[in-house]
């Protein structure tokens, strides 16, 4: 076999893998992760059912790859948008934007993660970890500058993520058939920024002790 034909075969293999992954990602976004079957993925990608398992050893591995790929895209986008020295507000705005672009998939993950195989948990946690890293870095800078309250990073992160996730999970209550983050994101960001901003909270304390 020539090096050329070997290279061509490898390119074709990678292309098929990407197609399977793209179709699986689309199906997971539409139907949820737990309801996406490998047979459907094979049909959508126009490959044999067996071919799916040439590229992914199991359904768990395929789902894990879908989550890894999707969350890596979000992390990369967040990393790119958050220039060194970005304020917390700018970082949170970038976070909302990244999530809004893939809101449906994120929603399924939030709803289904406890039921999904352990292999899916690692990329999901890695994603949360990367998000908290970017938010934490910006928060530490703003705390040092005195523009936001001093507070434990995990409470700041969990308060933010809890707020955002609540709107994503209950989207049908807040923005039926729309993106909850596109509709409510700006207000959530403004509200959260007001909550943690140092001057406002200091003013509240002064008022409370007056």
């Amino acid at each position: 076999m020539s090096a050329h034909s070997s290279g061509t075969r490898e390119i074709g293999k990678q292309r098929t893998r990407r197609r399977i992954l793209a179709k699986a990602t689309r199906l997971c976004a539409r139907n949820g992760f737990s309801r996406t079957r490998t047979l459907e993925v094979a049909r959508a990608a126009r490959v044999s059912h067996g071919s799916v398992f040439v590229h992914f050893r199991s359904r768990d591995e395929l789902l894990s790859a879908v989550v890894s790929e999707m969350t890596r895209e979000i992390t990369d986008a967040l990393h790119a948008q958050v220039a060194s020295g970005a304020s917390l507000t700018h970082t949170l705005a970038a976070h909302l934007e990244c999530l809004a672009e893939r809101e449906q998939s994120i929603r399924w993950l939030l709803l289904e993660i406890p039921l999904l195989p352990r292999g899916v948990h690692a990329p999901w946690l890695a994603f949360q970890s990367a998000t908290s890293f970017h938010i934490g870095q910006a928060a530490e800078r703003d705390m040092a500058a005195g523009s936001i309250e001093e507070m434990p990073l995990h409470l700041l992160f969990n308060t933010w993520i809890g707020l955002v996730n609540h709107y994503v999970i209950n989207r049908e209550l807040f923005a039926p058939n729309k993106s909850a983050l596109r509709v409510h994101g700006p207000v959530l960001l403004e509200h959260f920024s007001n909550l943690i901003s140092a001057p406002a909270s200091m003013a509240r304390r002064r008022k409370g002790t007056a």
Partner: peptide
């Protein structure tokens, strides 16, 4: 993971191990 997300110590250790394995 403990500082940024408040995870339990053992959970954080196991999660870090899972992540590094990849």
């Amino acid at each position: 993971l403990q500082t940024a997300q408040g995870l339990d110590e053992q959970v954080a250790h196991d999660a870090a191990k899972d992540m590094l394995a990849k």
